[in-house]
């Protein structure tokens, strides 16, 4: 993948996931979680902006590409669902992002992203433990979320060095054990996001996100 493609893919991951988290505004289960999810969303949008700016014009890239041109993972465009689904999605992604950004390029963006991802991982991980080892209902929801999102995890490691996968496995196994959750056994993995083959969800995300720019072409906001 060319350098700009590589940056775009990472930027798209961050933007789409940040956008999804921002959808929780006003709906979070507690006020403290409005803060936490908002924080994570802001961090991700900040990372996206930094990466887009390296690749070109941030708003042209975010607002004027259609779905087949986006290179984000399928995982990040999945719906928020209930809180368990959001936490599982975040956990699975951040467990990849935190080690990924360590020592990655561009160095300045990567250092900040690594630090932030470590906190996102801590937050999502601790919630996953509390949901898995909380009540019967929270356990059921967390397991269902994990079972549903598992097939999107393989894509994160396509064309990536093996140690990254090993580190992710270790983090996941350790947290699932504390959370009393079962690691899904299925090995079939969905793929395509990195090549512009997305799920039906991305179209709706972009329609909402890009509306104003598309409806008023050339306007400054």
């Amino acid at each position: 993948m060319a350098e700009s493609e590589r940056l775009l893919a990472l930027a798209d991951d961050a933007l789409i996931l940040g956008h999804r988290l921002s959808e929780w505004t006003g709906h979070a289960p507690l006020l403290e979680e409005e803060m936490a999810l908002g924080n994570i969303a802001l961090d991700l949008i900040g990372t996206a902006r930094g990466l887009y700016q390296r690749a070109g014009d941030e708003d042209r890239l975010a607002y004027h590409r259609d779905a087949p041109e986006f290179r984000n993972l399928l995982l990040v465009e999945q719906p928020n669902g209930d809180f368990a689904q959001t936490i599982v999605r975040q956990f699975l992604y951040s467990a990849f992002a935190a080690p990924f950004w360590q020592g990655a390029e561009p160095a300045d963006i990567a250092a900040e992203a690594a630090r932030q991802s470590a906190y996102h991982l801590r937050h999502a991980g601790e919630w996953l433990v509390r949901l898995g080892d909380g009540t019967e209902e929270s356990h059921r929801r967390a397991q269902a979320a994990l079972d549903g999102l598992w097939m999107y995890t393989g894509e994160m490691f396509e064309d990536r060095p093996a140690p990254l996968r090993a580190q992710w496995d270790e983090t996941v196994d350790r947290t699932l054990a504390r959370a009393a959750l079962a690691r899904p056994q299925s090995t079939y993995m969905q793929s395509g996001g990195r090549r512009g083959r997305h799920s039906e969800h991305l179209g709706y995300i972009l329609a909402e996100m890009q509306f104003l720019q598309r409806a008023y072409p050339g306007a400054t906001w």
Binding site: E32, M35, A36, N39, R122, E126, R130
Partner: peptide, 20 residues
């Protein structure tokens, strides 16, 4: 002050709320 069920979540809530 913050509300949280346990110390770890209290620490995170405090960080999110008071050190932005």
């Amino acid at each position: 002050s913050v509300h949280a069920a346990d110390a770890e979540m209290a620490l995170q809530a405090a960080r999110d709320t008071y050190t932005r």
